[in-house]
Design a binder for these strands. Structure first.
Ligand SMILES: [Zn+2]
Length: 289
DNA sequence: CGGCTTTGACCTGCGC
DNA sequence: GCGCAGGTCAAAGCCG
C-alpha cells in the first residue's frame, strides 16, 4: 500500500470573532491523488522505494492530510508499515509524502518505524517560520516532525514514535489495546482492527480540517498537561472514527492528533473539482508570491 | 431550526 | 472498595 499525503500550512489568522479558524486541507486531494498514481507507476517499475522531496520541517498538517488519504484509499491493507516519509516545502506550502509498504519486514523489531523520523529534515524555511509568531522563538530551532502510526490493534505492531515526546504520545494512545502495544511479550493479533494513528503537528491552529466532519464530544484536562485534550467523533452515520487533539505542554507549538479507526465512507468535501482547487490556490496564492 | 460546542456529570478500568 | 484519571454522555447554549 502506498499512501501519499499532501498538506499545506495556513497562516495563523488567529480568530475571527472569537472563532478558531480551521486549517483547510481538503482542497489538496486531487493533487494528492495524482501523486499517488505517480508513485504507483514508479513502483510498477520495481525500482524500490521512492523518496520524494526535501524540505523544511514544518509539519502543521501531516495529521489531517494523512488521515484524509488513508481513509480514502480504495484497497485497504491493514498490516502495512511506513517505508518512507518525505516532506517537500514550497514557500509556505508543505507537502507531505508518506510511503507505505507491505508488511514484509514487520517483524524486524519494527525498525523501519523507528528509523523514518531521521528522514525528516530539521531546518525550517524562513517563510513559514513567520507564522509561528514571536511567542516561541526558542522552539523554532528544534523543529522535529512526528508521524507516529500507532499500530496498537494491528498484529505485532508495537511502535514508538520519536523519543523526545514519547511520554505525551503514549498518554494519547494508551487506551483500548494498550496492553498490546506496551508489553513487548504480549503479542495479540487479529483482535480489533481499528488502526490508531497519532501525529505530532506543529501548528498554532489545533483544528485541522481533513475534509471530514467532526463533532466534538468531550474535552478533558489530562494530568501533567496544561492544555486540555479534545475528543472528536466523525459525524457520518455509522462511522465510528474518533480522534483526539491535544497540544503538548512541553512545546505548545506541537499538536498531537490521534486517529482511532478508518472511515468507511468517502469524504464529503467537494473535492475532485478543479475549480475548487484553483479557488483555494488563489486564496492561498499570496503565501508563495 | 439544525448542527455544532460547551461543560459538568457519569462511567470504567486500574492500582493500592 | 475506593479513589483517581481518562473517556463519554447529554443537556444547554451558541451561531449562521
Ligand atoms: Zn467517518
Amino acid at each position: 500500500m502506498v499512501v501519499v499525503a499532501a498538506a499545506r500550512r495556513e497562516e495563523g489568522k488567529e480568530t475571527e470573532k472569537g472563532r478558531k479558524k480551521w486549517l483547510q486541507l481538503w482542497w489538496l486531494r486531487p493533487w494528492l491523488r495524482m501523486q499517488l498514481q505517480q508513485l504507483q507507476l514508479g513502483k510498477n517499475r520495481r525500482k524500490g522505494k521512492k523518496r520524494l522531496g526535501y524540505g523544511c520541517g514544518c509539519s502543521d498538517v501531516i495529521a489531517a492530510a494523512y488521515a484524509a488519504v488513508v481513509s480514502a484509499k480504495e484497497e485497504e491493507e491493514e498490516s502495512s508499515m511506513v517505508e518512507g516519509v518525505a516532506i517537500m516545502a514550497m514557500a509556505a506550502a508543505v507537502v507531505v509524502v508518506v510511503v507505505f509498504g507491505k508488511e514484509k519486514k514487520r517483524n524486524e523489531n519494527s525498525s523501519s518505524m523507528d528509523n523514518y523520523p531521521t528522514q525528516f529534515p530539521t531546518q525550517q524555511s524562513s517563510s513559514s517560520s513567520t507564522s509561528f509568531r514571536s511567542r516561541h522563538p526558542s522552539h523554532l530551532s528544534s523543529n522535529r516532525i512526528g508521524i507516529t502510526p500507532v499500530f496498537g490493534s494491528l498484529r505485532g505492531g508495537s511502535s514508538s514514535g520519536f523519543s523526545e515526546l514519547n511520554d505525551e504520545m503514549r498518554a494519547t494512545t494508551s487506551h483500548g489495546d494498550a496492553k498490546n502495544e506496551m508489553k513487548p511479550g504480549k503479542k495479540k493479533e487479529n483482535r480489533v482492527r481499528k488502526p490508531r494513528y497519532a501525529f505530532q503537528t506543529r501548528s498554532q491552529v489545533d483544528i485541522l480540517d481533513d475534509g471530514y466532519r467532526w463533532r466534538k464530544y468531550g474535552q478533558k484536562v489530562v494530568k501533567n498537561n496544561k492544555f486540555p485534550r479534545s475528543y472528536y467523533r466523525c459525524t457520518h452515520q455509522g462511522c465510528n472514527v474518533k480522534k483526539q487533539v491535544q497540544r503538548l505542554s512541553r512545546d505548545e507549538s506541537v499538536v498531537v492528533t490521534t486517529y482511532d479507526g478508518v472511515h468507511n465512507h468517502p469524504i464529503e468535501k467537494p473535492n475532485d473539482n478543479f475549480e475548487d482547487m484553483l479557488n483555494q490556490m488563489q486564496i492561498y496564492s499570496n503565501f508563495w508570491s
